[in-house]
């Protein structure tokens, strides 16, 4: 059976935008089996905006799995927003995994916000001041948790959902000077070590949709401004047919 994954990130819903995105989700069950949200669902990460997100994505005819982004952390309420979403039946990943039965296949999704640091040869190291060490260590810890979650994942199809990018391919179009704030190769390294069928991320509004990890795993930047459509649909079945 085919497995159709709809994905979008960076919808940046404000309190003045209730219902606007929802209108694009009508009939999504005809196009996809599951919807993945790649973070930056709000503008400022307030509880009021979290409520808009909940109303926009609740009670869809297909399962919804999300991660939060940096904007969703801005008001220091990420746990509260995640709890509101979970209450409404939306799975929210925080460096862990969820497994769904879709058309008789087990779809495993691993992920979380991710973080920055840069890409191999042009990245920060855990050296020097405590602030730099903390920055790099945050990404390392996330990558380690993803590696563990992927290692323990028992599923037929494996997808990684992130906000920050694991590769620089999908950042093309962004100023190279800000790549270290857009993602980290440590995320890709962890995923490549354990294997996955697809990686989805957002965050880089001026980037490019399609990329690949060093080990050949497909990466898709599903930030709304990059897609230019309400969501991307990616069909996984291994033989190129849907």
């Amino acid at each position: 059976m085919s497995l159709r994954i709809a994905a979008v990130g960076d919808v940046h819903l404000g309190t003045d935008m209730g219902g606007r995105y929802r209108s694009h989700l009508t009939g999504i069950e005809e196009k996809a089996d599951v919807l993945l949200l790649a973070g930056d669902l709000t503008r400022h990460g307030t509880l009021e905006e979290g409520e808009v997100v909940v109303e926009e994505f609740r009670d869809l005819p297909i399962p919804v799995i999300a991660v939060l982004g940096n904007h969703d952390h801005h008001s220091d309420k990420p746990a509260e927003i995640a709890a509101m979403m979970r209450e409404a039946g939306i799975a929210v990943l925080h460096d862990d995994a969820v497994v769904l039965d879709v058309n008789g296949e087990r779809l495993g999704v691993v992920g979380g916000k991710g973080f920055g640091g840069g890409f191999a040869g042009k990245c920060a190291s855990e050296f020097g001041e405590p602030e730099i060490k903390a920055f790099v260590n945050h990404t390392k810890r996330i990558a380690d948790r993803w590696r563990t979650a992927l290692k323990e994942l028992e599923a037929d199809r494996r997808v990684v959902l992130s906000h920050y990018s694991p590769v620089n391919d999908t950042l093309a179009g962004e100023p190279p000077e800000i790549y270290p704030f857009l993602g980290s190769y440590l995320l890709a390294e962890a995923i490549d070590a354990e294997g996955a069928d697809l990686i989805l991320h957002g965050h880089a509004h001026m980037g490019t949709e399609k990329g690949v990890t060093p080990a050949g795993i497909r990466v898709r930047n599903v930030a709304l401004p990059v897609l230019g459509r309400a969501y991307g649909v990616y069909c996984l079945n291994g033989d190129g047919r849907c």
Partner: peptide
């Protein structure tokens, strides 16, 4: 509105 899907 999305019309196409990518087959991977």
């Amino acid at each position: 509105t999305p019309e196409e899907e990518e087959k991977l």
